[in-house]
């Protein structure tokens, strides 16, 4: 099935099997391997990307459902100085160890930054509860995101 979408500002068009998930389209067809698969059931958040500006699980979306939409992955953050600032704050504050969850946290946080009305920084732990990290104990991630949103 023909699928047309825009990824990190670049249009893409291709013939994809309907069963292909958006995550596998990004990883295997577009070589954007910064989007990670941690559970493929919508729980861990490692595959989070922005779809028309909203954070979604790319493992819970078929590629054909993304037809006509605009996607942002971790590889697209260089174009956004604000996102790059959070990324640098996470690195500086040791908000990552193995790094597998990091792209998902970054994209979730980016969606929060764009939320209208703005999110209350006190709710950051709750708002990041849709992303699992097994290394850091969350404290440094919460602190970096809170400071960045603040």
């Amino acid at each position: 099935m023909i699928c047309r979408l825009t990824v990190n500002g670049t249009p893409w068009e291709g013939d994809v099997p309907p069963r292909l998930t958006l995550a596998d389209l990004l990883r295997d067809h577009l070589q954007l391997t910064g989007t990670h698969l941690g559970c493929e059931q919508g729980v861990c958040g490692a595959c989070t990307v922005l779809c028309d500006g909203e954070a979604v699980r790319s493992c819970l979306m078929l590629a054909v459902q993304a037809d006509g939409r605009s996607l942002t992955t971790v590889e697209g953050l260089d174009a956004d100085p604000d996102a790059a600032a959070l990324r640098d704050a996470l690195v500086a504050g040791r908000g990552l160890q193995c790094g597998f969850c990091t792209p998902g946290f970054l994209l979730s946080a980016l969606a929060l930054r764009r939320a209208d009305p703005p999110v209350d920084p006190a709710r950051v732990p709750e708002l990041l509860a849709g992303n699992i990290c097994r290394c850091t104990g969350y404290g440094p991630i919460v602190a970096a995101v809170r400071a960045w949103l603040g």
């Binding site: 391997t33 910064g34 989007t35 971790v74 590889e75 260089d78 640098d88 990552l96 790094g99 792209p103």
Partner: peptide
């Protein structure tokens, strides 16, 4: 030296599933 962490945070970690042969 936070080089590794910075690379990982850019999505540039080459984990097993990212190797292309």
């Amino acid at each position: 030296d936070a080089g590794t962490a910075a690379r990982l945070a850019r999505g540039g970690g080459r984990y097993l599933a990212d190797l292309r042969v």
